[in-house]
Amino acid sequence: MSTPVPRSSGTGRGLLVAAIPYLWLVAFFLAPFVIVLRIALSDAATDQPPYAPHFPGISQLGEFLGALDLENFRLLGDDPLYWQSYLSSLRIAALTTLIALAIGYPLAYAMALAPKRWQGILLVLVILPFWTSFLIRVYAWIGILRPDGLLDMALMGIGLTAEPLRLLNTDTAVLIGMVYSYLPFMVLPLFSTLQKLDGTLLEAASDLGATPLTTFLTVTLPLSIPGILAGSALVFIPAIGEFVIPDLLGGSDTLMVGKVLWNEFFSNRDWPLASAVAIVLLVVLVLPLMLLQRARGQGEGSVR
């Protein structure tokens, strides 16, 4: 019945295979973004919910474009609440990344050095918390950090502190929760880079008289840079837009973009402003995303 089809003619079928997910993504990923952009550029006063943004036909395009304005973006620049929340998100995300690197690097290093038969189990142990609910992991920290919680009980029990630390609802609690939640994203790329490290290079360094510290600083650390970059990007990028952790562990003065967007939307019901916040957040994310792309490229290059 069927004649064998040479592979080169597969492009047509390729389009067919791609068509279903392609159309799905255009409908549920691309189109929503156009709508977000459209609403971000609309007037808060005329576009109060509930409303349905209607897309104009070609004939009304001129009128439509005339109605667009940058008022929401101007508001983002004028009100210090907004740009401060972006800065605060960047600061918390950067600190989270640094702390996760400080904890994750020794852990990944030890895992890579551990006997081969342990490594599979250790890897599963790192991944397993990722499979348990994010919300549950954040909730676990509320029980630990709240006044008279487990941490206070332990510290006061051994006499290190005399009164409750009151860590819950502070930026410190947010940092702890973020580092805890995103640590696996840091450890996994670091582990895979460190595991592939060529042991003979380290032997060569020490044969040539380098101390273990010198060997680490001049050989191991530079060679693990792709893993450091990939892990940092994987922690930094989701940390910027995080909502659940600052909302549950942070205080009323904890400013983060994800929380601001959520509040604009659910509390103030200002959809155009929430959309503008989202658009600016995406622009902020472009730079770290490009870094991640580069880190991936380097990572692939170093496998050779």
Partner: peptide, 10 residues
């Protein structure tokens, strides 16, 4: 890599 708040909102 998309923040969940943006995916949800859009």
């Amino acid at each position: 890599v998309m923040p969940e708040v943006i995916t949800g909102l859009s």
